Each structure stands twice: as C-alpha cells, then as structure tokens.
Simulated assay, not measured.
Amino acid sequence: MTNTIVIGNLEDDTIEMTERKGIGHPDTICDVVTEQISVALCQYYLEEFGAILHHNVDKALLVGGQSRPAYNGGEVVQPISLTIAGRATHQVGDKKIPVREIAIETAKKWVRENIRHLDVGRHLRVEAKIRPGSEDLVKLFQRFGQGEIPLANDTSFGAGFYPNSLLQKLIIHIEELLNIPETKIKFPFIGEDVKVMGVKGPSGNHFTVAIAIIDQYINDLNDYIAKIERVREWVVTRLNLSGSTVQINTADDYPSESIYLTVTGTSAEHGDDGQVGRGNRINGLITPYRPMSLEATSGKNPINHTGKIYNYLAMDLSRALVENQLVDEARVFLLSQIGEPINEPQLVHLQLKNRKVDKKLIKDLTREKLLELPNYWKRIIYQ
C-alpha cells in the first residue's frame, strides 16, 4: 500500500487503521503501572479506613536507558528512569500513609512480574513525587466516604463503542498471541515490547508488527532473520491470516546489520521513552476511525474522576446495548460537569445502528447503567 492515496466519503468504511501497544511498550508500562498504583492505594485505604480516599496518580514519565545489545547477549549500561507523579491522601488523623513506598513497590512488582528479562534492581530506577490533593477536589471526593453520591471532580467526557471490527479483533489477537506464556516458551527470543499496526484497505488487511527481540537468544544475523520469519509464518498460521499481509520489524536493515535487538525485551532500555495517556485506550486499542477520548484514564481515582469512569461506562453501555439485542452497533458519549453528581451527566449521546426496539427501552437501560455509577469503582479495581 506504499504511496496509496484513497479518496472516499464520510460514510466510507472500506478504510480503517488501528494500533495496539503490548505490555512491554514504554507507554503501556506507564499506563499499567499508574493504574496498579491506584488499585494498591484503593486497597490500602479500604483496609485501613473502610473507604477509598482521594487520589489521582495519573502522571508518569519513563525516560529510556542506554544499552549495548549484542549477539548471544549484551548489557544495559544506563538504567531506565520511571517517575510517578500525582496527588493522594497522605495522612488521616495521626496515621501517616506510606504513599511513596506503595507507589515504588507496586511499580517494581509489576515490572518484575511482566518484563521477564528486565532486572528491576539493575535496570530500573523508580521515583515517586506524589503530593497531597487540593482542598476543593478533596471535598468533592469526601461525599463518597459519607455514603453520598460523589460529585464529579472534572468537566470531562467519555467515549466508547461496540462491537470491535474484524481488524480491531485481529490486532488484539496478534499482540496477545505474541505475549502469552505459551509463545514465550516456543519463541523465548520474543520480548514483551510488541506493537501492532493494522490497516484495512483496498488490497485487504495489512499488519505491521514491531517485536523487541532479546539478544541472548540470537547467534548472528542469519539466525535473527530465520527466527523472524518463523514467527511471521507461525502468526499467519495460528490466526488464519493467509489472506492478509504480515510484516515484522520493517525498520531492519540487513546489509548494515541494523536490527531490532534488545537486552531486556523492551525498547525502554535504549532511548525509547514513555508517558501515561499515549498508549491504548481502556479497550486495549488506539482507534482513530472510532470514537475515543484522549483522557489518560490510568491512575485516576475510580470514585469521582469522570475522565476515567465515564470512559468505562461508555464502553460498558455500548456493549450492553448490543448484547441485549437492542441495536447492532452503538457509540456512546458522556459529558460531566464538575461539582455535579457523577450519575447525572450533563449529556448522554447515543449513536446507534439498526435500532431494533422502542427508544424507551434504550433509555431505561441507559438510566440503569447510570444508577450503577456510585458502585462502579468495584468493577474497576476488582476487574
């Protein structure tokens, strides 16, 4: 599809692009770590005080390290730096809360368990700069602890859609296949940093896959080339993609031996940086052809931060509308207003395809979902 120019109209669905970043991608690391810190804080607050306290730990910056990959194994010469920032409740009465310690240990634990060749002690430095929250936002939050409907802490919108297109489903399948334990046993040289870009166009589906290859399992250039091809053929066979084009590590330059080798299995080891909010949306995809919010949901509190919970609700409501056979396809948009009850959005906009029932049934289901919002935090932190 090189240099292909396609001119269509707004109703044209023959062209589509979608992206997914795997668990080892620097942006995904930032997203998942901040979300895990929020969950850890929620659990601590619940255990110690019986209620979740105010926090938003939704800022993280990963500064890539420096490494020297080499056939049969190289080295990391400068560690990755991960800085977590945000706001949280640090003290209740005389009891101090170890927010910093919780954040750092949670980040290290996740990396240790999910990026198998990254040595947390030698390859990663984590810093937490989490301060107390502003008084006005804390007050909006406190209604939750008193058993009242929380008030929205931001004027924000959420967006969601259902179902996924075939292209979107395949992109998820490709990344998940490359990162499941079975695959790591079969192909131990595959790192966790996997990115898949998919395009549906006039010539069919085309997938460009970037895989961080772990150097200690590669003997030389020919070995690298052979293993890349084995993986490509295996993905095509396993997922029945014979009618699609699949390419892996297309930036490789074999004549100069410039190839995608890493020591740890993530590009974060050598200059590729990461940031919260630049990766997948909560449905695991980046979808420029379908509705999505640019809000960084990771790390935001699950009680009254509508920039988080409205995106979850939009996804869940769109799915419910389809699965209850009320429509064939749904797109949901919700807008909050700061200081108003979270279950009373300023606007709920539904875009529906092939509506099958009276509008009243759809409105009833929507109101039912809105009534669930005060307890929605359970769906988020216990998922």
Results as ranks from 00 to 15, higher is better:
Thr4Gly: 05
Glu11Cys: 03
Glu16Gly: 02
Thr18Ile: 13
Lys21Ile: 10
Pro26Met: 03
Asp27Met: 08
Cys30Ser: 12
Glu35Val: 04
Gly50Gln: 07
Ala51Glu: 09
His54Phe: 14
Asn56His: 14
Val63Asp: 05
Gly64Phe: 08
Gln66Ile: 10
Tyr71Lys: 00
Gly73Leu: 08
Glu75Gln: 06
Val76Trp: 10
Ser81Met: 15
Ser81Gly: 12
Gly86Leu: 02
Pro98Asn: 10
Val99Met: 08
Thr106Pro: 15
Thr106Glu: 10
His117Phe: 15
Leu118Val: 13
Gly121Lys: 13
Arg122Asp: 12
His123Gln: 14
Pro132Asp: 07
Ser134Trp: 06
Lys139Trp: 04
Phe144Thr: 10
Gln146Leu: 07
Gln146Thr: 11
Gln146Phe: 04
Ile149Ala: 09
Leu151Lys: 14
Asp154Arg: 06
Thr155Tyr: 03
Gln168Val: 07
Ile171Arg: 03
Glu176Asn: 14
Asn179Lys: 00
Asn179Gln: 14
Ile180Asn: 15
Ile185Gly: 03
Pro188Gln: 06
Asp193Ala: 04
Lys195Tyr: 05
Met197Tyr: 09
Gly198Glu: 00
Lys200His: 10
Ser203Phe: 15
His206Ile: 13
Thr208Asp: 04
Asp215Asn: 05
Asn219Met: 04
Asn222His: 09
Ile225Ala: 14
Ile228Ser: 02
Val236Arg: 09
Val236Gly: 06
Leu239Ala: 04
Thr245Asn: 08
Pro255Leu: 02
Pro255Ile: 01
Pro255Glu: 02
Ser258Met: 07
Tyr260Gly: 06
Ser267Asp: 01
Ser267Ala: 12
Ser267Val: 12
Ser267Pro: 03
Ala268Arg: 02
Asp273Glu: 07
Val276Phe: 14
Arg278Lys: 11
Asn283Arg: 01
Asn283His: 10
Gly284Ile: 09
Pro291Gly: 00
Pro291Ser: 00
Ser293Lys: 03
Leu294Phe: 09
Asn301Ser: 01
Gly307Pro: 15
Ala314Pro: 08
Leu321Trp: 14
Val322Asn: 04
Leu335Trp: 08
Ser336Trp: 04
Gln337His: 15
Glu340Ala: 13
Ile342Gly: 11
Ile342Ser: 01
Glu344Phe: 07
Pro345Asn: 01
Leu347Gly: 06
His349Glu: 13
Lys353Gly: 01
Lys353Pro: 10
Arg355Ile: 09
Asp358Glu: 06
Lys359Gly: 12
Lys369Tyr: 11
Glu372Ala: 13
Trp377Phe: 15
Ile381Cys: 00
Tyr382Pro: 07
Tyr382Lys: 01
